[in-house]
Nucleic acid binder design. Sequence first.
DNA 1: TAATGTTTAATTGTGCGCAATTAAATTTCT
DNA 2: AGAAATTTAATTGCGCACAATTAAACATTA
Lengths: 151, 151
Amino acid sequence: MTATPLSSADQNLLLKLENQLCFPLYAASRMLTKAYLPLLQELDLTYPQYLVLLLLWEHEELTVKELGDNLLLDSGTLTPLLKRMEQKQWVSRRRDPRDERSVIIGLQPAGAALRQQACRIPEQLFAKLGMPQAEFEALRDQLNHLLTRLQ
Amino acid sequence: MTATPLSSADQNLLLKLENQLCFPLYAASRMLTKAYLPLLQELDLTYPQYLVLLLLWEHEELTVKELGDNLLLDSGTLTPLLKRMEQKQWVSRRRDPRDERSVIIGLQPAGAALRQQACRIPEQLFAKLGMPQAEFEALRDQLNHLLTRLQ
DNA sequence: TAATGTTTAATTGTGCGCAATTAAATTTCT
DNA sequence: AGAAATTTAATTGCGCACAATTAAACATTA
């Protein structure tokens, strides 16, 4: 299969930021994370720390590996992040006695208690967005679909 | 306007990663940037550096402020990034003689020359995605729309 | 069982992102 | 003109992201 050469006019169009998929994705992601900031600051949380808690509120205990598989983050990101969360007494870290390679992350009482205050965040953010529900769900589903393509 | 309380079952649903907008956005953005990596590494570029060049190929000269307005990045991010690009002789940095507060970023020959190799990246990436064109454009347009909401 | 290969976290080093502060230049107001 | 407010970059400090390497634990296989 031979690549068709593009005219330079076509290239000019393709090189514009707004015609690409990646830039709007990159920028919207950062702006949306920024919209979370005031809500998360009340809980002294960063966005990736909030994601870790979302998973732990659902599963109680997860290994670093499992957290990484779910969040698509590696130990280079998670290890220092989890150590900071341990210092704040939100999570615990211990080796799995049945497989000493794995580190099990558990919820401490303070981390479990945060759920009460955090459980309103999704609604608050949805309200802040002021986006029709159908549009919200369509975009979310397309992004989840893209995500499966990218793995 | 009074907030309607949610059932705890509803809250459980809302707190799941895949039901939120932000996580798929955050994860897809990182994974898509990662898909650019092999293409950008051939040019010794990072993704945000590539974005700066996309703008300069179009406009030849832009101030740090204008770059920041376009990319939604501030000087805390751009200043060190542009200094690294200056060291590699891709861009030039000089004060605007008509307004000494502004720093004008221009293209150096090596930076202009990169365009020849980079102009194929958008097509290569689109091919790599293997996504129907209509789906690509719909997602891109929805993200651009979300982006205007978030500004 | 001993050697080989794989899996899992941790570590190291680099480059963003961004809030907060500082300092200089310019604009606006009185 | 002079004072006050605004704009613009740079700096500082912190927390991700992630590639690459290391080391330990476990699994597989000869």
